[in-house]
């Protein structure tokens, strides 16, 4: 797999390398935004990489995920092509969604990615629907909706937990509890422990250190394999932190909802450092050569950006395409005539 270079994909070094890919991707996205090569803004995944990588490491290529506004990490970790992701963000025809989706809607159905989503909580029932279909058609595939702590207060998410439980769906809900929904701290917004809510619905539910990729992978694997065997849905609360603001537009502004000291504390638990420290002294790490990994990932990112930049823009005349799978004369109409 490209994401692992020449590494053993089950190794701890491979997990480190995958997280580094997500980190470098996101850093490059911010640079491209600042250079106006990417429009509007992005919700950076930096700090939360252990979640996407740890969960995806336990998923098969034909399993399905739904994602969020903060979706780049999930999408890349699940196996989307990096150049196609950059191209999507740059609005190019070669993008995952042919430039129609952008950051909050990036999807690759062929890789089991049913899409990032601009509406908080909206991916959960979609994952349940896919899981219901898998179950009813005798396929042992699993669906994983990713979502944040904030999404736990959306009615549709609670409705989804219920159907996942009563239908014993092959679904594992992955909640990235990064303590905030934009400026709102979870302590003021959510009653009780999040993973206990799911337990209340009868789901197998756990909370893990979301800054530790091995801990996430182990717990995810348990829940995912259990769900795959038809033993019921699961819920994994990953306690994590976003190092950046809610989105790129927050840079250089301070809304005072969290302290510099708190951010600093969490940065000391950077998932990349946690995994690097674990690997220090291990034989695999010595031979893998951290600098070489870093150089490989940097080269991959630059090649992907170059490929995206060279890709054509969509033709304006195709702006109405894909609205319908079957169209009729005059449909869709506008802006004139």
């Amino acid at each position: 797999m490209i994401e692992d270079g020449n590494l053993d994909p089950t190794s701890g070094v491979a997990l480190y390398r995958r997280m580094l890919r997500l980190r470098r991707f996101e850093e490059r996205v911010v640079e491209l935004l600042d250079a106006n090569e990417i429009a509007a803004h992005a919700h950076e995944y930096v700090g939360q990489e252990a979640v996407a990588v740890g969960v995806s490491a336990s998923l098969r290529a034909d399993d399905v995920v739904t994602s969020t506004h903060r979706g780049h990490g999930h999408v890349l970790a699940k196996g989307a092509d990096m150049a196609a992701m950059f191209a999507e963000l740059m609005g190019r025809e070669s993008g995952c969604n042919r430039g129609r989706g952008g950051s909050m809607h990036i999807a690759d159905l062929s890789a089991g990615i049913y899409g990032a989503n601009g509406i908080v909580g909206a991916g959960a029932p979609i994952a349940c629907g896919a899981a219901r279909r898998f179950r009813d058609s005798g396929q042992d595939r699993v669906a994983v909706p990713f979502f944040g702590d904030g999404a736990m207060n959306q009615g549709v998410l609670l409705e989804s937990l219920n159907v996942a439980a009563i239908w014993r769906l092959p679904v594992v809900f992955v909640c990235e509890n990064n303590l905030y929904a934009i400026t709102s701290p979870i302590s003021e917004m959510a009653a009780g422990e999040l993973y206990e809510r799911a337990a209340g619905f009868g789901l197998a539910s756990e909370a893990v250190d979301g800054m530790d990729v091995l801990a996430v992978r182990e717990a995810a694997e348990r829940l995912i394999e259990r769900a795959r065997r038809g033993e019921g849905a699961g819920f994994l609360e990953c306690r994590t932190y976003r190092f950046s603001g809610h989105f790129t537009a927050e840079r250089g502004r301070d809304f005072g909802y969290r302290t510099a000291a708190e951010i600093e504390d969490w940065r000391r638990r950077d998932p990349l450092d946690v995994q690097a420290r674990r690997l220090d002294g291990e034989e695999a790490w010595g031979t893998a050569d951290r600098a070489a990994i870093s150089a490989e990932v940097a080269a991959e990112v630059e090649a992907a950006v170059a490929q995206a930049r060279a890709a054509p823009w969509p033709e304006p005349a195709t702006a109405r395409d894909h609205m319908y799978a079957r169209t009729y004369p005059g449909l869709p109409a506008g802006p004139r005539g």
Binding site: R92, R100, P314, E315, A319, R320, P332
Partner: peptide, 24 residues
Amino acid sequence: LRRVTRADVTLPYSAPLEAEVLPG
């Protein structure tokens, strides 16, 4: 009379597509 409106589509992300379907 003439109408200039948004086209009856989900707004596509890419700038040249956006310009095509928004009332400009």
